Amino acid sequence: MRDAGAGESRDSPTGSADATGRTIIRVALYHPKQAWVDALEVLLESPPDIEVVAAHTNIDWIRSAVAAGKVDLLVVNIDDQGVEPPVVQSLLNSSPGLGVVAVTDAEETTLLSAAVRAGVRGWVKKNASVDHLVRVIRGVYRGETWFPPAFTTRLLDSLLTAEETRKQASGVLSSLSARELEVLSCLVRGLTRQEIAEHFVLSPHTVRTHINNVLRKLGVHSTLAAVSVARQAGLTTRPDEQDERG
């Protein structure tokens, strides 16, 4: 496992160059399985413009290297055995300019869409050649997006469908009052009716009335269905933390 905490080149600024003036792409490798990390590190030893500055199975090591500005691009395996998109998103939150390339055999459109939303800009099959992986790394480093052509149409269809669903759900939510939106937000967070009542200093009867109004306006018959509509609309905000009566 390689740590980015040592070595002069690992402390150099983004877009660092070697003695000849050639730009060096500082790459970090992350996967929970050591064998995956070791194998990929060996494959990336040859390209003269790529330096693996961190290769680890512990996400905290990678997170520290990224936060310290020692990494230009992250290569991860995204699938049910590897890294989930939210992990990528959390890393990009601390380093918005970080390039991310996924090496995976996953083909699920939902996973691909989630990965793109999280910030993945390159998608490489595990059986792809090293030359192709290097081209993708260089392209993503330059700000390009690299996805297999067969995935592009599926991805666009998925994103367009999701956007249309979000717009429809958002339109439905516009009929709710401010208090009803707050109550619905609490349901999205998993709060019980009693917890909602305590949070807003309301009676259980008042909370029940608000929830019934939400169900009626959304045209659904259960809180689970209401939560589904809320999530489709992107309603994830926390209700106001101040206790209010309503």
Score class of each variant (00 low, 15 high):
residue 43 L to P: 02
residue 44 L to Y: 09
residue 45 E to I: 10
residue 47 P to Q: 02
residue 47 P to G: 03
residue 51 E to V: 10
residue 52 V to E: 02
residue 53 V to A: 04
residue 54 A to P: 04
residue 57 T to A: 12
residue 59 I to V: 15
residue 60 D to K: 12
residue 61 W to N: 12
residue 62 I to F: 01
residue 63 R to K: 12
residue 63 R to S: 15
residue 63 R to I: 06
residue 64 S to T: 15
residue 66 V to S: 00
residue 67 A to L: 09
residue 67 A to C: 02
residue 67 A to T: 12
residue 68 A to R: 13
residue 69 G to T: 05
residue 71 V to C: 06
residue 74 L to C: 07
residue 75 V to W: 05
residue 76 V to S: 10
residue 76 V to Q: 03
residue 76 V to K: 07
residue 77 N to D: 14
residue 78 I to K: 04
residue 82 G to H: 06
residue 83 V to L: 11
residue 83 V to N: 04
residue 86 P to R: 02
residue 87 V to W: 09
residue 87 V to N: 07
residue 88 V to G: 03
residue 89 Q to G: 10
residue 90 S to K: 13
residue 93 N to E: 14
residue 94 S to C: 04
residue 95 S to R: 15
residue 97 G to A: 11
residue 99 G to P: 00
residue 101 V to N: 04
residue 101 V to W: 06
residue 102 A to S: 15
residue 102 A to F: 08
residue 102 A to V: 00
residue 105 D to N: 15
residue 105 D to S: 15
residue 107 E to N: 13
residue 108 E to L: 11
residue 108 E to V: 08
residue 109 T to A: 09
residue 109 T to I: 10
residue 109 T to C: 04
residue 109 T to G: 02
residue 110 T to N: 09
residue 111 L to Q: 01
residue 112 L to K: 05
residue 113 S to H: 09
residue 113 S to D: 10
residue 116 V to H: 11
residue 118 A to E: 03
residue 123 W to C: 00
residue 124 V to C: 05
residue 125 K to Y: 13
residue 126 K to G: 09
residue 126 K to C: 11
residue 126 K to R: 15
residue 127 N to W: 13
residue 128 A to M: 07
residue 128 A to Q: 07
residue 131 D to F: 03
residue 132 H to F: 14
residue 132 H to S: 10
residue 134 V to G: 03
residue 135 R to M: 10
residue 137 I to L: 04
residue 138 R to T: 06
residue 142 R to N: 14
residue 144 E to I: 02
residue 148 P to H: 04
residue 149 P to R: 13
residue 150 A to C: 07
residue 150 A to T: 15
residue 151 F to Y: 14
residue 153 T to G: 07
residue 153 T to I: 14
residue 154 R to G: 15
residue 154 R to K: 14
residue 158 S to T: 00
residue 158 S to M: 00
residue 159 L to K: 01
residue 160 L to E: 10
residue 161 T to W: 09
residue 165 T to I: 12
residue 166 R to Q: 12
residue 168 Q to Y: 08
residue 170 S to Y: 00
residue 173 L to V: 01
residue 173 L to C: 03
residue 174 S to W: 02
residue 174 S to F: 02
residue 175 S to N: 04
residue 176 L to A: 01
residue 179 R to H: 05
residue 180 E to S: 01
residue 181 L to M: 11
residue 182 E to L: 06
residue 182 E to N: 10
residue 184 L to H: 06
